[in-house]
Simulated assay, not measured.
Amino acid sequence: MKDKKVTIYECNAGDIIARNVIDIRSGITLCQEGHVLTEQSIEWLKRFMCSDIYIESNTWDKVWHIPAESKVSYEQDKEKLQKTLSAIGLGEEIDKEAVEEIKTTFFTKLNSNSTIMGCVNVVKTLDEYTYTHSLNVGMLSVLIGKWMGLKDEQLEELFLAGVLHDAGKYKVNQNVLNKKGELSSLEYLIVKRHATESYNLIKDVDGISNAVKEGVLSHHERIDGTGYPRELKGDEIHLYGRILAIADTYDAMISERVYKTRQTPFEVMEKMLSEGIDKLDTQILLLFLKNMADYYIGVQVTLNTGEVGEVVFMHPHCIYRPIIKVAETYYDLDRRTDLEIVEMIS
C-alpha cells in the first residue's frame, strides 16, 4: 500500500510512521519509520510544528509481510475478476480463460497462508466489495481446505467455486442488492435467486467439475435446513458448499458494505460462534476460527478506552477476547469484561 501524507493534526493514535519525521530546522530525526503513534507522541510532534507526516495507509503488511509481487498479483486478479463479472451483467457468458488465469496467478504467486490473510484483511473501498469478495472467498476456502488436509485438486476446485459463487448477483437487480434499508419479502426473494443464477451460469460449462457447480449452488444452504435454494440439511449439503458458507460469511462480515460498517475479526469470530454454530458445519467452523485466530497475533487494535495496543495472545477457549499489550501493561480481555476492541488499526 502507498504511504499517505497527512498533517500532524490528522494523525491518530495507532497510525504507523512510514518515513522518518525530520525537524527541518535542526535536521534531527524526531520520529523514526515504523513508530506507532500514541496520543503522547502526537502531542510531542505538534510542539515541533511538523507539517507533512507520512503514515502507512495500511498496516497489514507489517503483520503478514506480503511480498511486493504478491500485492501486484492480487490487484491484477481483482481487475481481471471485475471485468469478468461485470461482463456477466451485460449478458455475456463466463470468460473461462480469464477465470483460469486468475486461478493460475493465485496458486503460483498468492498461495501462502500469511499472504492470503494479508490480502483478505486489506481495507477496501465500498465499490470494490462486489468483486474482491468473490476473490477473497476463493482464497479463504483454500485456507480452510488446507487446514482440513484436502488434496491439491480439491483446493483448486474450492478456489474456483469461491471465485464463481456470487457470479449470479450480476443477473440480479443491483438496486435491490445494494439497498441500504431492510429488504422487503419480495426483495429478499430476488436476492436469494443469485445462488441459482450463479449455478445456471456454469452448469453447462465444460471443464468445471460437478463438485464446483454443487458448491456454488449450495453456498447459502444451512445445516439446520433454513438456507436456500433447496433447504438442504447437514451432510445433504456438499462439502464445498459447507466450506464456502463459512468463507463467505466471514469475509462479508469483516468488509465494509453499503448497508453496514465492517466489523473487527474479533466481533466476527464471536458472532460466528454464537449465531452460526447451528447453521454452519460446526466441525469446519471451529477448525477455521481456531486457525484464523493465530494470524491476528501482532495486529494493532484500539480499545473502547481509546488506548492503542497489540494483540499478544489468543485464548484457545475464548479466541475473540485476547490479551492486549498497551505500553507495558497487559489487558486480559477474557477477565476485563469492561474492555472491548472497537477497531483494527489499518
Rank of each mutant, 00 (worst) to 15 (best):
Ala211Pro: 13
Leu126Cys: 05
Lys180Asp: 04
Arg242Gly: 00
Lys213Trp: 00
Gln154Cys: 06
Gly149Tyr: 09
Gly149Arg: 14
Glu128Trp: 04
Glu236Ala: 02
Asn178Cys: 09
Asp127Phe: 01
Glu197Asp: 13
Glu187Met: 00
Gly234Pro: 15
Asp206Tyr: 06
Leu217Val: 05
Ser184Pro: 04
Gly145Tyr: 11
Lys146Cys: 01
Asn178Ile: 05
Ile237Asn: 02
Ala211Ser: 15
Thr132Met: 06
Ser185Glu: 15
Glu236Ile: 00
Leu155Asn: 04
Asp235His: 14
Arg222Ser: 03
Lys171Ser: 03
Glu236Pro: 08
Lys180Arg: 14
Arg230Met: 14
Val212His: 10
Ala167Ile: 03
Glu236Leu: 06
Met139Ile: 05
Gly207Val: 12
Ser218Arg: 15
Lys146Arg: 15
Tyr129Pro: 13
Ser209Val: 00
Gly162Phe: 05
Ile190Trp: 10
Ser134Asp: 07
Glu128Gly: 00
Lys179Asp: 08
Glu182Asn: 12
Gln174Met: 10
Gly138Pro: 11
Glu231Ile: 09
Lys124Asp: 14
Met139Pro: 12
Gly149Ile: 04
Leu143Tyr: 08
Thr132Ser: 08
Met148Trp: 08
Met148Asp: 13
Gly234Met: 15
Tyr188Asn: 15
Lys151Phe: 00
Ser185Trp: 10
Thr130Met: 09
Lys192Phe: 00
Glu236Met: 07
Asp127Cys: 03
Ile237Arg: 07
Val216Tyr: 03
Leu150Arg: 10
Gln174Tyr: 11
Pro229Asn: 09
Leu201Trp: 08
Asn200Ala: 06
His165Trp: 04
Ala195Asn: 12
Asp152His: 12
Val163Phe: 01
Asn175Val: 06
Leu150Thr: 08
Val142Asn: 09
Glu153Asp: 11
Leu126Arg: 13
Ala195Pro: 09
Leu164Lys: 12
Val122Cys: 13
Thr130Val: 13
Thr226Ser: 14
Lys151Tyr: 01
Glu231Gly: 09
Ile144Tyr: 04
Lys203Glu: 11
Leu186Glu: 11
His220Asn: 13
Asn210Gly: 13
Val212Ser: 06
Thr226Gln: 11
Leu217Asp: 04
Gly227Thr: 08
His220Tyr: 12
Asp206Ala: 10
Leu143Ile: 06
Leu135Val: 05
Leu126Gln: 14
His194Leu: 01
Lys180Ala: 02
Val212Phe: 05
Gly168Leu: 05
Asp206Met: 11
Asp224Gln: 05
Thr132Glu: 13
Val172Asn: 02
Thr196Tyr: 12
Met148Phe: 02
Asp127Trp: 03
Lys124Cys: 07
Gly145Glu: 14
Leu158Gly: 00
Ser141Tyr: 07
Gly162Thr: 14
Lys169Glu: 11
